[in-house]
Amino acid sequence: MLKIGITGQAGFVGKHLYTTLALFQEEFERVDFQKEFFEDATKLNDFVSKCDVIVHLAAMNRHNDPQVIYDTNVGLATKLVHALEATNSKAHVIFSSSTQEERDNLYGKSKKEARELLANWAKKSQGNFTGLIIPNVFGPFGHPNYNSVVATFSHKIARNETPTIDVDGDLKLIYVGELVDEILKEIRIGDSKEEVLVPHTSESKVSRILFLLEKYKEQYQNNGIIPELNSRFEVNLFNTFRCYMDIANHFPVKFTQHTDPRGAFVEVIRLNVGGQVSFSTTVPGITRGNHFHTRKIERFAVIKGKALIQLRQIGTQETHDFYLSGDEPAYVDMPVWYTHNIKNVGDEELYTIFWINEFYDPNDPDTYFENV
């Protein structure tokens, strides 16, 4: 079993990699990293000595003074090299650099020099090093005004703010889940490669991204409609946007009931995308679910009985509790990377309708079990 440590474990990419590694517990063991290790050589040496693989993600992306970015990123790589030398480490070091390496800015220069520092360590010590040149990364839980324009736009639009475009350039993009797959591939291969160009998986103008996000806001956030999603990129962008919504105050969304002497009619879902609709009955006291998805879009609609739907983002402790009743039919949607369940908390049978955007595939279920 490989012991893997991630500098920058709490950052955007680091968080996704750390939580994904937990899905492969028979293959990988996670070595915990804390930011303060870089300020204490003893702790950093101890961390390095425990690792078979070190994924060096810790870096500064933005600062008012570009020199601070340069000094920080080169400084972090230098400290890591010192720890590798002090412990005579034979770990496979994987470094995340950027396609900005060749640009005339101090951030790009800092990433290139950091990569070269680690590559030189590997040559001198007969170590194992892989340098990844990575395009623009986007995905859920990125920091607005820091990680990507997608994070900034999604955050603002979800809060009824109006983003502005400074330069309507063409962006070469990779979804954070796809990047994690690339890192896992390099971990499993285990070969030294001083420079690996990670291919982008999508390309879009900034204005196109803004257009799509505003469409998701209007159709989904405002009206509950699942929008048309024409590519894997658009599914990933939509799932990214959903994670910036204030779900605690958005859900549950009550349906509009149309009643007459015959009974009631409720429209459960409007969608411009396919998928699968199911329903379940649940006896009192029983809980279903306790799992999460990394790509699927899912809706739970309670039409009879009383239910408690719970959501918790993986890696956090906060639980969102939503109480629904068939007396006022309502739905809750499941964001990606949120473990969720539904429990019958009433005295009668619970009727629930489920919609998910793709057919169930037992060979690729995208369903990971974890108690809320």
Rank of each mutant, 00 (worst) to 15 (best):
K3F: 02
K3Q: 05
I6R: 06
T7M: 06
G14H: 03
K15F: 13
K15W: 07
Y18T: 08
T19W: 11
T20W: 03
T20H: 07
Q34V: 01
K35A: 06
F37W: 05
F37C: 07
F38L: 09
E39W: 08
K43A: 15
F47I: 03
S49G: 11
V53D: 12
V53I: 12
V55D: 11
H63A: 15
T72V: 11
N73D: 04
G75A: 10
G75M: 05
G75W: 06
T78R: 11
K79P: 06
K79N: 06
A83I: 01
L84A: 12
N88W: 00
I94R: 11
S96I: 02
Q100Y: 13
E101Q: 15
E102M: 04
Y107I: 13
G108W: 08
G108N: 13
R115V: 09
L117H: 14
L118E: 12
A119I: 02
N120V: 10
W121D: 01
K123N: 05
G127F: 08
G127L: 09
N128V: 05
G131Y: 03
L132E: 04
L132A: 04
F141H: 05
F141M: 10
K156A: 04
K156R: 07
I157T: 06
N160A: 09
I165H: 13
D166P: 00
D170R: 14
L171I: 12
V176N: 12
L179K: 10
E182N: 08
I183V: 05
K185Y: 13
I189P: 04
I189W: 02
G190F: 03
D191M: 01
E194V: 04
E194R: 11
E194G: 07
E195F: 01
P199Q: 02
H200G: 03
E203C: 07
K205I: 06
V206Y: 14
S207F: 14
S207R: 14
R208G: 10
F211Y: 14
Y220N: 13
P227Q: 08
E228M: 05
E228G: 02
F233M: 11
E234Q: 15
V235D: 15
N239S: 14
F241I: 10
H250E: 04
V253Q: 13
K254N: 12
G263K: 03
V266R: 08
N272T: 00
V273W: 14
V273H: 15
F279S: 13
S280F: 01
S280H: 02
T282L: 02
T282H: 04
N290E: 08
I297W: 13
R299S: 02
R299F: 01
I303E: 04
I303N: 01
K304Q: 12
A307K: 00
A307I: 00
G315V: 02
G315A: 03
Q317C: 00
D327G: 03
V332R: 02
P335C: 11
V336Y: 13
V336I: 15
W337Q: 14
I342Q: 02
N344D: 10
Y351I: 04
F354L: 11
F354Y: 12
I356V: 13
E358S: 14
D364L: 14
D366G: 01
T367V: 00
N371Q: 08
N371G: 05
